[in-house]
Simulated assay, not measured.
Amino acid sequence: MPDPTSDTGPEPAVRPRRRVLRTVGLIAVAAVLGLVGGTAVGYRIQADREPTLLPALNQPGLAYPAKPLPKGEEPEPLSAAEDHQLKAEGDLRKLLLPRPAGARAEGPDGWQSLSQYVDGYTLPDAALEFQLDQGIRRIATREWRVGEYKTVEINLVQYRAGSSNGAWEHVMDQQRIAGGEARSGSLGESVKGSSNGRYFVYPVRREAGYMDSYMARAFIAHGDIAITILMYDTRKISGSEIRSLAERQLGRL
Rank of each mutant, 00 (worst) to 15 (best):
M1K: 09
R22Q: 11
R217A: 04
D91C: 07
P124F: 01
K67V: 10
P68S: 13
G107Q: 03
E50N: 10
V29T: 13
R142P: 07
I237K: 01
M211C: 02
A178G: 03
P65W: 00
E148D: 13
A182Y: 08
T228P: 03
S113G: 12
E129R: 12
N58M: 10
G90C: 09
P108K: 10
G110M: 06
E89R: 12
S244T: 13
L21P: 01
R205S: 13
G239M: 04
S6Y: 08
R235I: 08
A28M: 15
M215L: 13
P203Y: 07
R248A: 11
G9L: 11
D125G: 06
A101E: 14
R205P: 04
A56Q: 11
P75I: 05
E106L: 03
L69S: 08
V146S: 11
A88S: 06
D233F: 00
A30Y: 10
K150P: 00
E207G: 06
V171S: 01
R17M: 11
S194F: 06
L245S: 04
Y214I: 00
G209A: 05
I227K: 03
V29H: 06
R243V: 10
L21C: 05
L21R: 12
S164D: 06
E74Q: 15
D48A: 15
L253G: 02
A182N: 13
G120D: 08
A101S: 14
Q112Y: 04
P51E: 09
T151H: 03
G107W: 14
A13Y: 08
R142S: 12
A221N: 05
Y43V: 15
I227R: 02
R206G: 11
V204C: 04
E153G: 14
G25T: 07
E241N: 03
Y121P: 04
I45S: 08
L62M: 06
G251D: 14
R160I: 06
V20N: 05
N196D: 13
A56N: 09
L97G: 09
A126P: 01
G34I: 12
L123A: 12
K192T: 14
N165C: 10
S79T: 15
